[in-house]
């Protein structure tokens, strides 16, 4: 700045720096966040990374001796199967939320402008009730003597009650219900942006509605689908509450393994290694998909 050149020997003043130096203002504004994130996000993450190379002591304490034991243990078929299973549940949740969420998002984007925000609001409203309560509602519906079986039995559609609760199917029902809004909102954001003119152009060029959908609408909604997939897949992969409450003992996901290692078996180093693997998997998924299609604001809904 000109004044600085004229008076280069002026003493440093905090007030002046805050008023005049733009980089300094930026740093002043970001520093509370930066410091907070450093202490409560970065340091704990580094700690988990370090822990994953340590050993469990006799009393569930941590012995600080560097080794790869925990990662070797994770290659055991039991854990590999759990990992693959979690991956499968995460992907299945993603696919089902797309199958249910896409038509819904399309419907909202095609509705009259004044009704759209109401429809969106109606999707979000139930999710202001507590997550555990929503799971509990599904348990009431699905259990052997629950609402679904009572209704089906009374209608004479089934003779024996269905055992849905405490099966992988129940876990999937709970997960899809839980994560549906995370898919619908980004999908809506990208579908809503498609101009009518683009569809008219396709029609003018002779494309029938289905073809126009496949060649115009679908490709243009890919960023929303990717953003939604990330928002659904990541939490679904790490979920342990739904398998706990709805999956019974049969359904163990990697989230359950991590939780158990930290709170029941007290083998923190092994739990940390499982966390690292989970984190690497989700990060790889995120990076792969964000590279494939540029998006940004779809994540900001």
């Amino acid at each position: 700045m000109e004044t600085d050149i004229l008076k280069p020997k002026r003493k440093f003043s905090l007030v002046r720096a805050l008023r005049e130096d733009s980089a300094f203002q930026g740093i002043a504004l970001i520093s509370p966040t930066a410091i907070y994130m450093l202490i409560l996000i970065i340091l704990p993450m580094i700690l988990v990374a370090v822990l994953s190379f340590m050993t469990r002591g006799t009393y569930g304490n941590v012995v600080y001796k560097f080794n790869f034991q925990n990662y070797v243990r994770l290659i055991d078929p039991i854990y590999l199967r759990i990992l693959l299973y979690s991956l499968g549940v995460g992907l299945a949740t993603m696919v089902f939320t797309i199958l249910i969420g896409y038509p819904l998002a399309y419907f909202i984007a095609r509705s009259p402008v004044r009704k759209r925000s109401l429809y969106l609001f109606l999707i979000l409203l139930p999710f202001w009730t507590n997550f555990i309560i929503r799971i509990y509602a599904w348990i009431m519906i699905l259990r052997t003597q629950g609402l679904l079986n009572t209704v089906l039995l009374n209608l004479g559609l089934i003779k024996v009650p269905l055992d849905i609760l405490y099966t992988p199917a129940a876990v999937l029902i709970g997960m899809v219900y839980e994560f549906l809004p995370f898919m619908v909102l980004p999908l809506y954001t990208s579908l809503e942006k498609i101009e009518n003119a683009q569809l008219e152009a396709a029609a003018d060029l002779g494309a029938r509605p289905l073809r126009a959908f496949l060649r115009v609408t679908l490709p243009l909604s890919v960023p929303g689908m990717i953003a939604g997939s990330i928002l659904v897949f990541i939490p679904a992969m790490g979920m342990f509450v739904v398998p706990d409450l709805m999956g019974g003992a049969k359904t163990v996901l990697v989230g359950n393994v991590i939780r158990n290692q930290f709170l029941t078996s007290r083998d923190w180093p092994f739990g940390a290694a499982a966390s690292m693997v989970l984190m690497i998997l989700t990060l790889a998924f995120t990076l792969y998909y964000t590279r494939k299609a540029g998006f940004g604001e779809e994540l900001l809904v």
Binding site: L40, I41, P44, M45, L47, V48, L51, I230, I234, P235, M237, G238, M239, F240, G255, I258, R259, F262, W268, G271, A272, S275, L278, M279, T282, L283, T286
Partner: peptide, 13 residues
């Protein structure tokens, strides 16, 4: 973008 369970155990540790 990280699973909640990972953030939870990292804070606990």
């Amino acid at each position: 973008i990280i699973p909640e369970v990972v953030m939870g155990i990292s804070l606990l540790a």
